[in-house]
Amino acid sequence: MPIIKTEGLTYVYGEGTPFCKTAVDNVDLEIEEGELVGIIGHTGSGKSTLIQHFNGLLKPTSGKVFIDGEQLWKDKSHLRDIRFKVGLVFQYPEYQLFEESVYKDIAFGPKNMGLSDSEIDKRVRESMRMVGLSEDIMEKSPFELSGGQKRRAAIAGVMAMDPKVLILDEPASGLDPKGRDAILAQIREYHQQKKNTVMMVSHSMEDIAKHTTKILVMNKAKVFCYDTPVNVFHRSKELEQMGLAVPQITRVFNRLKAAGVPIDDDVYTVEFGKKLIMRLLENR
């Protein structure tokens, strides 16, 4: 059974006004449990609208959303419980911090779930460890932290709810290269330890290529494709036509191929590119 499933999901902004716009158009999607999904698509392709449906923040104009087999919006009283199964981290999540201490802020979600104090304590500590925050800063005000630490604290606040699906909207945007790599590595680590489903929106094809097991490409409110990185980058020409920047390394290998170098595989990480060239050179 897929963890997330949509049937004919459609969402129209400002319906009935002259400004109405179909943000998500008739999307059928099945996401299996345990995947690390990268979501790409340019601004306005509908990816942010789509993910807000997965935890019931938006109600579909038409179509259905199933989480863990249960249909969202069928029974409004179940909405909150289903919502706890899908944790959503918005872009620039540090702007949602509000409590007087880091500990309390991370505990906000678990508390809303009605967990016991000891369980909350356990989860706060665990999620802080997961994002690489030391326990020394637990009693500090979240506003005293550095930019990168704030981001981690906010992500920990959602991880502490222990959702079956964790969705992050551009978790690395605005960070420096070191901060970016650290956060992405921690998300991957979290995915490997928890073995649950993680979805991550990113503009950076390089990051997506490096970290994910499946890629969902959105284009003009529709799903362009949902497949493994290899298969998605096999269509790199189409991606480029869509205005998406494929990784520099992919472009290099596409050009080598076009120049007659016998390369069959699609290259989307530097490491793999290196191996491929070494193999070619050795075979001669």
Partner: peptide
């Protein structure tokens, strides 16, 4: 717009 975003974010954390 900020208010909208913050409300959604807190709702996603179970704020009622």
């Amino acid at each position: 717009e900020d208010t909208d975003k913050i409300m959604s974010a807190q709702k996603a954390r179970g704020a009622d």
